[in-house]
Design a protein around this nucleic acid. Structure first.
Lengths: 185, 185
DNA sequence: TAAAAAACCGACTAAACAGTCAATTTGTGT
DNA sequence: ACACAAATTGACTGTTTAGTCGGTTTTTTA
């Protein structure tokens, strides 16, 4: 594995456990088994490393989740697939989840960063579609996207504390009804 | 104003703008107009200061929001009052809001802390009531509480970016329908 | 009003930190 | 085989940091 990747994996592990504040760059390099200098060769500052990791994680989760949607699915099916894929991905990648939560709620994060992301447009289009078809509530498509994203986080946090429910498909369907009822007209 | 309060107000301002990582204790003391030493007289460590602030803010917002509920209100009215009060309080106290978001999504925060909070029980009871009366979805009362709390955050973030909607009662009612539909059977 | 306690000061320190850099190794194209 | 570029090292540094401490002022108590 190349050292850039090793650094990002180690950084993710440490950031998610100890926070940005509690993780020294020297420690990241040491635990990744590379030299101190190479970290700053790939990422000119600590902040740049954090930002690069954000884009990397966001990319992977959206690529995975959007990839699960199949053609000719109804709007509800698409949203169900999207929601479930995101929830399961986050449960299987707890470090990524913790890192993202921390990042998105820190002063590092601005909406400029968010908006620059290609996948946001794609989910917005789904929401707009639902509104036009009269299936969703007549509100800003942005709030609908944010509601779904927020409910993914809420669900993941809840299922983490209730491991026995993680495999319970029936219960997860009930949890999805929360999401669907929230956005549907 | 006593120096302990001055310190907490200044810390809140700086933490919300620059994060825990980006705010030095010396700077907090300086901008609060007090000596460096007195900070550690009141809060033995920086982490203790952060935690004390969390309890302080949480206390005030819950005290305010729960206080808005009137006797003999229906369950829906109670939830509406609670949700609206929380949203408006957060909009009027953006530093508190940013601080809380940061804290609750950082490794500082554990569910042990959350559970130790007296107000959590009170909202849980409201949720249990709704479930027993058959008015809410038949899921864990905890997820219902977390859904409402999460949707408060989502709403606040959204209204912050759309200042023109902040006074629009009709629109806010529509946003509440998202919350209500999410939890109601 | 005296003495005890609590609040308060700011200079100080030891450790930790992000980022640099000159030197060395590894890879690549000719 | 050679030259040139890119990757990599780890010791180093100037600064910043949380937290300490001996001493002073203010408040409380009896």
């Amino acid at each position: 594995m190349d050292k850039r990747t090793k650094l990002m994996l180690t950084a993710k592990k440490l950031f998610s456990k100890h926070g940005f504040y509690g993780t020294a760059t020297a420690r990241i390099a040491k635990e990744a088994g590379v030299s101190n200098g190479i970290l700053f060769h790939y990422f000119s500052t600590k902040d740049k490393l954090i930002e690069a990791m954000y884009f990397d994680v966001k990319d992977r989760i959206f690529h995975y989740s959007l990839g699960q949607i199949y053609k000719d699915a109804t709007l509800k099916e698409s949203f169900y697939t999207l929601w479930l894929a995101a929830v399961e991905w986050n449960l299987e990648n707890p470090e990524d989840f913790d890192f993202m939560l921390q990042f998105e709620n820190s002063p590092f994060y601005s909406l400029e960063i968010e908006k620059s992301h290609k996948y946001v447009q794609m989910t917005m289009e789904l929401a707009e579609q639902g509104i036009e078809q009269g299936e969703f509530k007549f509100v800003s498509p942005l709030i609908l996207v944010q509601v779904v994203a927020g409910l993914v986080d809420t669900t993941v946090k809840f299922l983490r504390m209730n491991e026995d429910l993680q495999q319970d498909t029936e219960y997860k369907n009930k949890l999805f009804e929360i999401v669907w009822d929230a956005i549907k007209k």
